[in-house]
Design a protein around this nucleic acid. Structure first.
Lengths: 210, 210
DNA sequence: TTTGGTATCACATTTTCGTGTTAAGTAATC
DNA sequence: GATTACTTAACACGAAAATGTGATACCAAA
């Protein structure tokens, strides 16, 4: 069992110290640096190159933890980041994951579970509570269901819209579907009416749920 | 602790029977139905209305487990579905989640963890292994990073492209950005050249990473 | 100082798109 | 048997987009 080096970015002194003690007091873990703001972390972490960085969301100064992760992750893609926060809202979760966090756990997590999560993220997992996971899964399910306005389209119209979305010219669509260009025009017209749009781009945007 | 009713859809007789025994032999769980194919499950589950349905991927007959989930989830949004499979590939995971599965666990999971996962998914969580979660998280990170070809665009060009993507006419873009329509034309031309496209829709598709 | 990249504007031409109107054949519904 | 919805098609017109060519100005790097 190799030793996992950990950096902590957390502005609350008590929490920061408690986590440092926990990590340094556990076999197989070493805290190599603690920071109370994003700017210092951004400056020092490149020197320390920890395996895992624990990141708080709210930090004093202009930069929050997510921005800090985004910058570091770009430079050091192999470094693992884990959000450690009190927030459970969708926005913050998705932002953190997009920025490059692999784990997302709440501060109320027990010390034992925290250590386990650190090891987990280091070994290629994505530790997160089952509730957090449900938020992430819900995102997929929401994405999957298309705009209900599209249901009003006939199957032929959907076919045409799909061709439109791929950027084909009318004449290309006509030849792809073996119909006249005038018929394409007609279908497009009907599609626009049903979707209440006046241009191809707007129609495609609705098609992709934007 | 209320009793969780469970249905099992799994074609392998041994596995199906073993799970049924496990569930019926555990306090707080009851197996209310087992099925060896999707068609029968689709027909019977509406009568049983279990809290949780465990679903295998490969099933005999025309329908697989994902299609089965998709149909049932549309009818019974409150029913919880958990994939129980041997597959760990991204495609199957994402398909299952989009279809409406809330949990995704592997067949090698221990009996104790399986029971825990069933309770978890019933209580609003999304049980999945840390490795599975990483796949899902990776999807977010991939989505977040834009097409590298866009980096070749100047900031002004990105601004124009963003306006294009919103469906504005050239003259609207011109007035939004306080420039001449001829300048818009020129920028659009340069954007198309850099992105190697010949139409607005293709450019927008690249902008959105399609 | 020159060169290269960026942003700006102009004119001309061709192609494509969006809209209006009309209408025939088919399939499903009532 | 009439009605309704869908698919197909044609013609015309103006608007918008795409293409080609050229030009000026600014700024920063070579």
């Amino acid at each position: 069992m190799d030793i996992i080096s950990v950096a902590i970015v957390e502005d609350n002194h008590d929490i920061r110290t408690a986590m440092e003690l926990l990590i340094n007091g556990s076999d197989g873990y070493a805290c190599v640096g603690t920071f109370n703001n994003a700017e210092t972390a951004l400056e020092q972490i490149p020197n320390l190159l920890p395996n895992v960085a624990l990141m708080d969301f709210n930090l004093p100064g202009g930069m929050n933890g997510i921005e800090c992760i985004a910058r570091l992750k770009t430079e050091y893609p192999d470094m693992q980041f884990m959000m450690l926060t009190v927030y459970e809202d969708d926005d913050k979760i998705f932002q953190a994951l997009e920025a490059g966090a692999s784990g997302y756990i709440l501060k109320k997590t027990s010390p034992g579970e925290l250590l386990e999560a650190i090891r987990d993220v280091h070994e290629g997992g994505s530790p997160m509570s089952s509730q957090i996971a449900r938020r992430v899964v819900a995102y997929f399910q929401k994405q999957a269901k298309p705009n209900p306005a599209l249901e009003a389209l006939t199957s032929r119209e959907k076919e045409i819209l799909d061709q439109l979305s791929k950027g084909f010219l009318y004449k290309e669509i006509a030849s792809n579907l073996y119909i006249s260009i005038e018929t394409v025009r007609r279908h497009v017209h009907n599609i626009y009416e049903k979707l209440h749009v006046r241009s191809r781009t707007d129609a495609v945007n609705k098609y992709y749920n934007r």
